[in-house]
Nucleic acid binder design. Structure first.
Length: 279
DNA sequence: ATTGGTCTGTGCATAGCGAC
DNA sequence: GTCGCTATGCACAGACCAAT
């Protein structure tokens, strides 16, 4: 089977200034895989055709056509084709703060975090609602889309989500490393610096971080940089500027990492802006 | 302008082992 | 089970260039 290039994949991102808490990605007939990555948003996927293999929560899971998939915010995961076969899917990314506000209202208490109890959901009614939502977004019927999204998330949140501390199970060391890395994306402290600050060996530091987060500190900082760069691209920054402002001194290297994390080029991601924004 | 290939030096990730 | 030490392979950063 011939390798498929990222640029040849039929896919688009949907965004709109009136619904800033939503980003939708629709991908058709793709055999492109992802490396382990995370999103700050809640990810809700819908497999339209084929099967996808998701590495999530330390296990490999299969998601089949007709199923919805829930991935917690900031949870490390990767989605890859099975035996090189293509799959078509939508991914709905919902802003974490927006989700927390909705969940807080639903549970009647202010929440600082939440987690999803289920990974794959086979519910034909919910799946149909999800596809209707995609249709409404693509056709620009935003009011109806928002109403449908409200209903859909109330069902999903009440059935499949639970309140949780945002720092659940995270040791102080991991928390400290995250803060230090996020303090300065452009010139983050080296592993050696962090290890010295914590009076640990660098390997110990990596082990602790990997155990808690699921990726290494280096992979984590690159993920955050890519997420930040996506924000800048959405705001209309050039690819070169987005790369520089997020700490990538080489635009070529930024491009490669972006493709590995998103299965789309920065250009593809940015161009989708014209489809949806401000029109 | 964008995308992506190659090359080199460096830092990181990982595995294996032993000590506690 | 956790941690420290060592060796080793790999990924990355950065530079440069070519193709589109």
């Amino acid at each position: 089977m011939a390798a498929q290039s990222v640029r040849s994949v039929e896919q688009e991102y949907w965004r709109h200034n009136d619904l800033p808490h939503i980003e939708l990605r629709s991908t058709r007939q793709s055999r492109i895989g992802y490396k382990a990555h995370l999103h700050q948003a809640l990810s809700i996927g819908a497999i339209e055709q084929g099967t996808t293999c998701v590495n999530y929560g330390g296990a490999e899971r299969l998601a089949h056509a007709g199923e919805l998939v829930l991935i917690d915010p900031e949870a490390v995961h990767s989605c890859n084709p099975v035996d090189g076969h293509s799959r078509s899917y939508h991914m709905l990314y919902l802003d974490n703060t927006w989700c927390l506000n909705r969940l807080s209202a639903l549970f009647g208490q202010p929440l600082s975090g939440f987690c999803c109890d289920r990974f794959a959901i086979k519910d034909p009614l919910l799946f149909t609602q999800y596809l209707s939502l995609v249709e409404l977004l693509h056709s620009g019927q935003l009011n109806q889309a928002e109403t449908l999204l409200d209903g859909l998330t109330v069902t999903l949140f009440s059935r499949y989500c639970s309140p949780a501390s945002s720092d659940i199970d995270q040791r102080e060391i991991t928390h400290y490393i995250r803060l230090r890395l996020l303090e300065n994306l452009v010139t983050p402290p080296s592993l050696t610096d962090l290890a010295e600050e914590l009076h640990l060996r660098p390997e110990t530091l990596i082990r602790i971080f990997y155990k808690d987060v699921g990726i290494t500190p280096k992979a984590f900082i690159n993920n955050v940089r890519i997420e930040r760069a996506k924000l800048l691209l959405r705001q209309g920054e050039s690819i070169v500027d987005a790369a520089q402002q997020t700490g990538f001194s080489d635009q070529s290297h930024f491009h490669k990492l972006f493709v590995l994390n998103n299965a789309a080029t920065p250009r593809q991601y940015q161009l989708s802006r014209s489809i949806s924004d401000n029109n």
